[in-house]
Amino acid sequence: MDTSDLFSSCRKGDIYRVRYLVEQRDVELNVRDKWDSTPLYYACLCGHEDLVRYLLANGARCEANTFDGERCLYGALSDPIRRLLKEYKRITAKCMQRDYYDDFLQRLLEQGSYSDTMFLVHGMSFCAHRCVLGARSPYFAEMFETKWKGKNMIALKHPLINPAAFGSILQYLYTGRLDIDVEHVEDCKRLAKQCRLQDLIEELEEKCKKVYEFVSSKPGTCVKVLTVEPSGNGRLQEDLAMLADCAVPAELRVGFGELPFDSTDNFCSYPDLCFHIQGYNFLCHKSFFCGRSDYFKALLQDHFCESQELQSQPSIPVITLHNINEETFTRVLYYIYSDDTEVITLQFQ
């Protein structure tokens, strides 16, 4: 209901209603309707300059030479709106958004904090986390346990592997979003097929079709960058929740996550941190706990010098947490990895 209200308000130019939906109801600004149109497109089309300015300032995407950018520019009702679109500068379209989970995943990709592998692709290097790539792609999960097993640096020398396309594939695996120059789309589809990302291939083909139809019908437009955006984080969150499944001790798994936990039996999550709670060991990842929580980041930095080591895996430090039970920690664990968890509600009579 809120989403349809946002589209309606943008067509009407009701900036107060739009501000309420965005700031109070947390409605996603870049949502799309069945015609693949965004709220910004309707604001431009209907000539609401103040609303266009507000949407841009709060994270609406309108990068030059993209499908959305060119469509908004072509459909703008007035020259002032066109000038506003052309003059508006943005380093990243996500910088004003308030989705901290998306922001965390983007930073994890860009900064590579606590990464445990590096890919070398024709002179370009890409830091990555095996746990993320393995959870998101069966191909990577298989390769890390076979051809790439034990390797911290992996050189991809095949002439058909394009560095730009490889970077976009990593972007998709980490964030669910992909930006690629139109000239590299076929390279990206080839890599997606290798990585067994059928959903991405279908999305790329559908987006290419829409861009072709738009450019063919609108002389003078130029789309150089193709963008694939997730309709929601559902699949991404489900994949990363498997890392939480793996972190939970086997004897505690009944009752948490999705049964029967078959997905964890043959999946290696490559943990680098252990939390010891009430006699149970939770095998986790520094990248998620430090990136998602300042509390855990400070805790780990202060206690690594005092931590013990896991006997079965001496390279993994063990941090003992007090004053928390295993059930509560498990719920925190799922939130850290997937931004979703079950919350216990207490009812008083």
Rank of each mutant, 00 (worst) to 15 (best):
1 M>L: 13
4 S>M: 08
5 D>I: 11
12 K>A: 15
17 R>G: 15
18 V>T: 15
25 R>T: 07
25 R>K: 07
26 D>H: 15
28 E>R: 12
28 E>W: 09
31 V>K: 00
33 D>G: 00
35 W>N: 05
38 T>G: 05
38 T>L: 12
39 P>Q: 10
45 L>Q: 06
46 C>K: 15
50 D>K: 12
51 L>I: 11
56 L>Y: 11
58 N>Y: 07
62 C>W: 08
72 C>R: 03
74 Y>G: 14
77 L>S: 07
78 S>P: 15
79 D>A: 03
90 R>K: 15
96 M>C: 10
100 Y>Q: 01
104 F>P: 02
106 Q>K: 02
110 E>Y: 09
110 E>L: 06
112 G>W: 05
116 D>V: 01
119 F>K: 02
122 H>E: 07
123 G>Q: 08
126 F>R: 05
126 F>P: 00
135 A>M: 13
138 P>E: 05
138 P>Y: 08
142 E>M: 14
142 E>I: 04
142 E>Q: 03
143 M>W: 11
143 M>P: 08
154 I>E: 02
158 H>Y: 00
165 A>T: 00
170 L>I: 02
170 L>D: 02
171 Q>I: 04
173 L>P: 13
176 G>K: 00
176 G>Y: 00
178 L>P: 03
180 I>D: 01
182 V>H: 11
184 H>T: 14
184 H>P: 04
186 E>D: 08
187 D>F: 11
190 R>M: 08
197 L>I: 05
200 L>W: 06
202 E>H: 07
204 L>W: 06
207 K>A: 06
207 K>M: 13
208 C>H: 10
209 K>G: 04
210 K>P: 15
213 E>V: 01
221 T>K: 14
221 T>G: 14
222 C>D: 15
223 V>L: 08
225 V>K: 12
229 E>N: 04
231 S>N: 05
237 Q>W: 10
241 A>T: 01
245 D>P: 00
248 V>W: 11
249 P>N: 11
253 R>N: 09
257 G>F: 08
259 L>I: 01
261 F>K: 12
262 D>H: 10
266 N>V: 13
268 C>E: 14
269 S>R: 01
270 Y>V: 01
274 C>Y: 06
274 C>H: 08
277 I>A: 12
280 Y>E: 13
282 F>H: 03
283 L>R: 09
285 H>D: 00
286 K>V: 10
288 F>C: 07
290 C>S: 06
291 G>S: 10
293 S>H: 09
293 S>W: 12
294 D>N: 09
301 Q>T: 15
301 Q>N: 09
302 D>N: 12
303 H>R: 09
306 E>V: 01
307 S>I: 11
307 S>V: 03
308 Q>I: 14
317 P>R: 14
322 H>F: 13
322 H>V: 05
328 T>Y: 01
328 T>C: 03
329 F>W: 04
331 R>F: 03
336 I>H: 07
336 I>V: 05
336 I>L: 12
342 E>N: 13
344 I>E: 14
